Simulated scan of single mutants.
Amino acid sequence: MNQTSENTRTLVIERTFSHPLEKLWRALTEGSLLAQWLLKNDFEPMVGRRFQFRSEPMLQWDGLIDCEVLVVEPLKRLSYSWNALGLESVVLFTLTSEEGGTHVRMEHSGFRPDQQQAYGGAKYGWQKFFGNLEQVLDGGIQ
């Protein structure tokens, strides 16, 4: 049975970082920096680029998240598909420069009603990832 977009949930996390827009963009788009706060990857910021995030394998999961870059608007928006464990979803980052920092809005959309556990896991995971991002930014990206 196909699910329409009205039947899916979206997780939204918003945070303002006391770092310039360019620094946030680098943390989102440079594979080595992305690996420090999110997951190991072979990401490149090019629309159509297929890549994988690699997590530690767990029971009944190889730890691979299959992705494809959907949107790259430098210093503004970045989006990619996020497919693992039956979840076919989309992650979208929107950056907005603010006085004294950068506002980041992350939307992870596509959770079906029967994927409550995946939604809860993503909510926990993204909060943790955003904490990691703050530490990476504070750690001295130039």
Rank of each mutant, 00 (worst) to 15 (best):
S5E: 13
S5Y: 09
N7Y: 13
T8P: 08
R9F: 11
R9D: 13
R9E: 04
R9S: 12
R9V: 03
R9C: 09
T10L: 13
T10V: 11
V12A: 02
V12D: 04
V12P: 11
V12F: 10
I13Y: 04
E14L: 03
R15G: 00
R15N: 05
R15K: 08
R15A: 05
R15D: 00
T16D: 11
F17P: 00
F17W: 02
S18D: 14
P20S: 11
L21E: 12
L21W: 04
L21R: 13
E22R: 01
K23Q: 09
K23F: 00
K23E: 01
L24G: 00
W25T: 08
W25I: 01
W25M: 08
W25D: 00
R26Q: 04
R26V: 03
R26F: 04
A27W: 02
A27F: 01
A27E: 02
A27C: 04
L28Y: 06
T29L: 10
E30L: 09
E30A: 06
G31C: 10
G31Y: 10
G31A: 13
G31K: 08
S32K: 12
S32Q: 06
S32H: 08
L33H: 05
L33G: 02
L33M: 03
L34E: 10
L34C: 07
A35M: 02
A35N: 03
A35H: 13
Q36N: 03
Q36H: 14
Q36I: 03
W37E: 01
L38F: 14
L38D: 00
L38Q: 11
L38C: 07
L39Y: 07
L39A: 09
L39P: 01
K40P: 07
K40Q: 08
K40C: 02
K40G: 08
K40Y: 14
K40H: 07
N41A: 03
N41V: 01
N41E: 13
D42R: 04
D42F: 09
D42E: 10
F43T: 12
F43G: 00
E44Q: 15
E44H: 11
E44R: 15
E44P: 04
E44F: 03
P45D: 09
P45F: 10
P45W: 10
P45N: 13
M46L: 14
M46I: 14
G48E: 09
R49I: 04
R49Q: 08
R50H: 05
R50D: 06
R50S: 13
F51P: 00
F51L: 07
F51D: 11
